[in-house]
Simulated assay, not measured.
Amino acid sequence: MHVLRLLAVASIFAAPIALSAESITYTDTFTASGSIGAETFTDALVTISGTGNSSGIINEGGGIFALSLPVTFSIAGVASGTFTDDIQVFANQSSGIAGFGDNTNDFALIYTANPALSSYSLSTGIGPVTGPSLFNSVDATLGEAVYGTNDGNFALSSVSDSTFQASPVPEPSSLALFGTGALGILGVVRRKFGRA
C-alpha cells in the first residue's frame, strides 16, 4: 500500500518533467503547387516537419533563432521523403515569422507570418499559428529555388497560407515514470473502492 502511494506521488512529479522535454517537433503545413523530381503537383497538402533538440538553438542576434535538424516532407497523394540539403527551422521575431530555411542554397523554404511569432525563440511549443506564407519560387539571378531531397529536387510555385506548430516531445523515461505512477494511482483507487 505504501509503495502504491509513493508511485502515485512520483507520477504527480513526473507530469511536469514530461512536459518540459528538450526535443521539439516543428511542422509547417500548407496547400501548394510545384514539383518533386520530374513530377508536378497542384493544390496538394504539403507538410514539412523536423524534430530537434532545443539545446542546439543558435541565437543569431536581433531576435533571430535557428536550429539545424533533419527535415522530412509529405505531399499528399504524390510523394514523401527527406531533404538532403542542410535545412534549419528558423524564427525571426522582428518579422514575426517562423518556418524552414535552406542553408545549402540560402533560400527560404517556407515561413509562416503571424504577430504571435514576434516573441517566439524556438525553445518552446507554440501553435498551431496560421498566417500568410513566405517562400522562394524564383530568384532573378539564380533561377528557380530548388531544394534537394532523396526523391529529386523540390520546388514551389504557389503556396496558400501556412500553419506553423512546435510540439514538445516527452522523454521516454519521463513517460515511463508517469505511466508507473498512473498504475499506482489506479491500484490505490481499486483498493479504496474495493474495501467500501
Rank of each mutant, 00 (worst) to 15 (best):
N103G: 13
E144V: 13
V188A: 03
G127E: 14
D28N: 14
T141Q: 14
N114W: 03
F13C: 14
G148R: 10
E171R: 14
S11N: 03
R191V: 12
Q165E: 15
L183T: 09
N150H: 11
S80A: 01
L19H: 06
S174Y: 06
T51I: 06
I24Q: 07
A10K: 08
S68P: 07
I97K: 01
L134Q: 14
S137I: 11
E22H: 12
P172N: 08
G125V: 15
A155I: 02
F73N: 06
A38F: 11
G125N: 11
V159R: 00
G148D: 12
A140C: 03
G50C: 08
S94R: 07
G125M: 11
A14C: 02
S80R: 06
T42H: 05
V89M: 01
V71A: 02
L45G: 00
L7F: 08
T149G: 04
V71C: 04
S95K: 05
L186D: 05
E171H: 11
F90K: 02
S158P: 01
G184Y: 11
S74W: 07
A10L: 15
V78K: 12
P170K: 07
S162N: 06
P16W: 01
Q165W: 02
A176T: 15
S80Y: 03
A176R: 04
I17D: 00
Q93W: 11
D28Y: 05
S121Y: 05
S173A: 12
V188D: 05
G63K: 02
S20V: 07
G37R: 08
A196L: 09
Y111F: 15
G81C: 11
L156F: 02
L6T: 13
D139C: 05
T149K: 06
G131L: 06
E171Q: 13
L175N: 05
F193V: 13
A182W: 04
T180C: 08
Y26C: 04
D86K: 10
G34H: 05
L175Y: 06
I126L: 13
G52S: 04
V78D: 01
T51C: 04
G127W: 13
F193I: 14
A15D: 06
I24D: 03
S118Q: 13
S95R: 11
H2L: 12
